[in-house]
Write a protein that binds this DNA or RNA. Structure first.
Length: 166
DNA sequence: GCCAACGTTGGC
DNA sequence: GCCAACGTTGGC
Protein backbone atom coordinates (compact mmCIF):
# COMPACT_ATOMS: atom_id res chain seq x y z
CA UNK A 1 0.00 0.00 0.00
CA UNK A 2 1.20 3.49 -0.79
CA UNK A 3 1.01 4.52 2.83
CA UNK A 4 3.30 1.74 3.94
CA UNK A 5 5.83 2.83 1.35
CA UNK A 6 5.63 6.39 2.57
CA UNK A 7 6.19 5.13 6.10
CA UNK A 8 9.33 3.27 5.14
CA UNK A 9 10.80 6.51 3.90
CA UNK A 10 9.82 8.23 7.12
CA UNK A 11 7.24 10.52 5.61
CA UNK A 12 4.25 11.83 7.44
CA UNK A 13 0.85 10.69 6.23
CA UNK A 14 -2.40 12.62 6.24
CA UNK A 15 -5.94 11.53 6.98
CA UNK A 16 -9.46 12.79 7.16
CA UNK A 17 -11.61 11.63 10.07
CA UNK A 18 -15.35 12.10 9.77
CA UNK A 19 -17.58 12.72 12.72
CA UNK A 20 -21.16 13.74 13.13
CA UNK A 21 -21.00 16.74 15.45
CA UNK A 22 -23.92 15.34 17.41
CA UNK A 23 -21.72 12.35 18.26
CA UNK A 24 -18.40 14.16 18.69
CA UNK A 25 -17.69 17.66 17.43
CA UNK A 26 -14.62 19.83 17.03
CA UNK A 27 -15.74 21.75 20.10
CA UNK A 28 -15.69 18.50 22.04
CA UNK A 29 -12.07 18.08 20.93
CA UNK A 30 -11.29 21.68 21.87
CA UNK A 31 -12.62 20.85 25.33
CA UNK A 32 -10.87 17.46 25.63
CA UNK A 33 -7.63 18.42 23.80
CA UNK A 34 -7.10 14.69 23.25
CA UNK A 35 -9.42 11.80 22.54
CA UNK A 36 -9.53 8.18 21.50
CA UNK A 37 -11.20 7.72 18.12
CA UNK A 38 -13.56 4.95 19.08
CA UNK A 39 -16.56 3.42 17.39
CA UNK A 40 -15.17 2.75 13.93
CA UNK A 41 -17.03 -0.35 12.77
CA UNK A 42 -16.04 -0.68 9.16
CA UNK A 43 -13.29 -3.10 8.13
CA UNK A 44 -11.58 -0.88 5.60
CA UNK A 45 -11.39 1.99 8.08
CA UNK A 46 -10.32 -0.49 10.77
CA UNK A 47 -7.43 -1.66 8.63
CA UNK A 48 -6.22 1.92 8.24
CA UNK A 49 -6.44 2.55 11.99
CA UNK A 50 -4.69 -0.71 12.79
CA UNK A 51 -1.95 -0.66 10.16
CA UNK A 52 -1.43 2.73 8.58
CA UNK A 53 -2.28 5.62 10.87
CA UNK A 54 0.95 6.50 12.69
CA UNK A 55 2.10 8.81 15.47
CA UNK A 56 2.66 12.30 14.11
CA UNK A 57 0.32 11.88 11.15
CA UNK A 58 -1.95 14.80 10.34
CA UNK A 59 -5.72 14.53 10.69
CA UNK A 60 -8.40 16.71 9.15
CA UNK A 61 -11.47 16.76 11.38
CA UNK A 62 -14.59 16.79 9.20
CA UNK A 63 -18.19 17.34 10.27
CA UNK A 64 -20.57 15.05 8.39
CA UNK A 65 -24.34 15.21 8.44
CA UNK A 66 -24.08 18.77 9.64
CA UNK A 67 -24.34 22.38 8.67
CA UNK A 68 -22.04 23.39 7.34
CA UNK A 69 -20.43 20.26 5.97
CA UNK A 70 -16.80 21.22 6.52
CA UNK A 71 -13.31 20.48 7.67
CA UNK A 72 -13.44 22.18 11.03
CA UNK A 73 -10.10 21.40 12.61
CA UNK A 74 -6.67 19.85 12.50
CA UNK A 75 -5.42 17.12 14.79
CA UNK A 76 -2.39 14.91 15.18
CA UNK A 77 -2.08 11.22 15.92
CA UNK A 78 -0.57 10.68 19.39
CA UNK A 79 -1.18 6.95 19.83
CA UNK A 80 -1.21 4.25 17.18
CA UNK A 81 -3.76 1.52 16.65
CA UNK A 82 -4.85 -0.42 19.72
CA UNK A 83 -7.99 -2.43 20.45
CA UNK A 84 -11.19 -0.41 20.72
CA UNK A 85 -12.38 -1.47 24.15
CA UNK A 86 -15.84 -0.01 23.60
CA UNK A 87 -16.52 -3.05 21.39
CA UNK A 88 -16.35 -5.22 24.52
CA UNK A 89 -18.39 -2.95 26.75
CA UNK A 90 -22.06 -3.94 26.82
CA UNK A 91 -22.92 -0.48 28.13
CA UNK A 92 -21.32 1.25 25.16
CA UNK A 93 -23.30 2.30 22.14
CA UNK A 94 -20.42 0.84 20.14
CA UNK A 95 -20.68 -2.55 21.78
CA UNK A 96 -20.12 -5.42 19.36
CA UNK A 97 -21.55 -8.65 20.80
CA UNK A 98 -19.48 -10.69 18.37
CA UNK A 99 -16.24 -9.12 19.56
CA UNK A 100 -13.67 -11.47 21.06
CA UNK A 101 -11.30 -10.05 23.73
CA UNK A 102 -8.64 -12.59 22.69
CA UNK A 103 -8.79 -11.46 19.09
CA UNK A 104 -9.88 -7.83 18.85
CA UNK A 105 -11.74 -6.98 15.69
CA UNK A 106 -11.89 -3.21 16.11
CA UNK A 107 -9.12 -0.70 16.61
CA UNK A 108 -8.76 2.95 17.48
CA UNK A 109 -6.06 5.60 17.68
CA UNK A 110 -5.67 8.65 19.90
CA UNK A 111 -5.51 12.15 18.47
CA UNK A 112 -4.84 15.55 19.95
CA UNK A 113 -6.10 18.91 18.82
CA UNK A 114 -3.68 21.03 16.82
CA UNK A 115 -6.08 23.80 15.85
CA UNK A 116 -9.72 24.51 15.28
CA UNK A 117 -10.15 26.17 11.90
CA UNK A 118 -10.67 29.94 12.28
CA UNK A 119 -13.24 29.45 9.52
CA UNK A 120 -14.59 26.03 8.51
CA UNK A 121 -13.33 24.87 5.13
CA UNK A 122 -16.70 23.98 3.69
CA UNK A 123 -17.42 21.08 1.42
CA UNK A 124 -18.88 23.61 -0.97
CA UNK A 125 -15.65 25.60 -1.15
CA UNK A 126 -13.63 22.40 -1.52
CA UNK A 127 -15.73 21.33 -4.48
CA UNK A 128 -14.62 24.46 -6.29
CA UNK A 129 -10.95 23.59 -5.96
CA UNK A 130 -9.31 21.80 -8.86
CA UNK A 131 -6.53 20.63 -6.53
CA UNK A 132 -9.12 18.76 -4.46
CA UNK A 133 -11.20 17.26 -7.23
CA UNK A 134 -9.86 13.75 -6.63
CA UNK A 135 -10.45 13.77 -2.87
CA UNK A 136 -12.24 10.66 -1.71
CA UNK A 137 -14.45 12.84 0.45
CA UNK A 138 -15.91 14.63 -2.55
CA UNK A 139 -16.65 11.55 -4.56
CA UNK A 140 -20.20 10.36 -4.64
CA UNK A 141 -20.88 7.52 -2.28
CA UNK A 142 -17.57 7.82 -0.43
CA UNK A 143 -18.69 6.74 2.98
CA UNK A 144 -15.38 5.68 4.48
CA UNK A 145 -15.01 7.42 7.83
CA UNK A 146 -11.20 7.28 7.83
CA UNK A 147 -9.79 8.48 4.52
CA UNK A 148 -6.27 9.00 3.21
CA UNK A 149 -5.45 12.55 2.15
CA UNK A 150 -2.53 13.47 -0.11
CA UNK A 151 0.05 16.06 0.91
CA UNK A 152 -1.14 18.25 -1.95
CA UNK A 153 -4.71 18.08 -0.70
CA UNK A 154 -3.58 18.71 2.86
CA UNK A 155 -1.54 21.74 1.83
CA UNK A 156 -4.43 23.18 -0.13
CA UNK A 157 -6.84 22.79 2.75
CA UNK A 158 -4.34 24.45 5.12
CA UNK A 159 -4.17 27.32 2.65
CA UNK A 160 -7.96 27.56 2.39
CA UNK A 161 -8.13 27.58 6.17
CA UNK A 162 -5.46 30.26 6.42
CA UNK A 163 -3.42 27.98 8.67
CA UNK A 164 0.36 27.86 8.60
CA UNK A 165 0.84 24.26 9.71
CA UNK A 166 3.10 21.53 8.45
C1' DG B 1 -37.44 13.06 3.73
C1' DC B 2 -35.36 10.97 -0.30
C1' DC B 3 -32.45 7.82 -2.10
C1' DA B 4 -27.82 6.28 -4.16
C1' DA B 5 -24.20 3.81 -2.75
C1' DC B 6 -22.46 1.19 -0.27
C1' DG B 7 -21.63 -2.97 3.57
C1' DT B 8 -23.63 -6.96 5.97
C1' DT B 9 -26.49 -10.96 6.56
C1' DG B 10 -28.24 -15.28 5.72
C1' DG B 11 -30.65 -18.77 2.83
C1' DC B 12 -29.40 -21.78 -0.55
C1' DG C 1 -19.57 -18.90 -2.90
C1' DC C 2 -23.59 -16.51 -4.78
C1' DC C 3 -26.74 -12.98 -4.36
C1' DA C 4 -31.17 -10.90 -2.80
C1' DA C 5 -32.82 -8.57 1.05
C1' DC C 6 -31.87 -5.54 4.37
C1' DG C 7 -29.58 -1.82 7.12
C1' DT C 8 -26.62 2.27 7.21
C1' DT C 9 -24.32 6.38 5.64
C1' DG C 10 -24.59 10.81 4.40
C1' DG C 11 -25.20 14.34 0.69
C1' DC C 12 -28.86 16.66 -1.22
Amino acid sequence: MANKKARASGKRSYWLFKSEPGAYSIDDLVRDRRTCWDGVRNYEARNLLRDDVKIGDGVLFYHSNARPLAVVGVAEVVREGYPDYTALDPASKYHDPKSDPENPAWFMVDIKLVAKMPQPVTRESMMGEVALKDMMLLRRGARLSIQPVSKREWDRIMKLAGLKLG
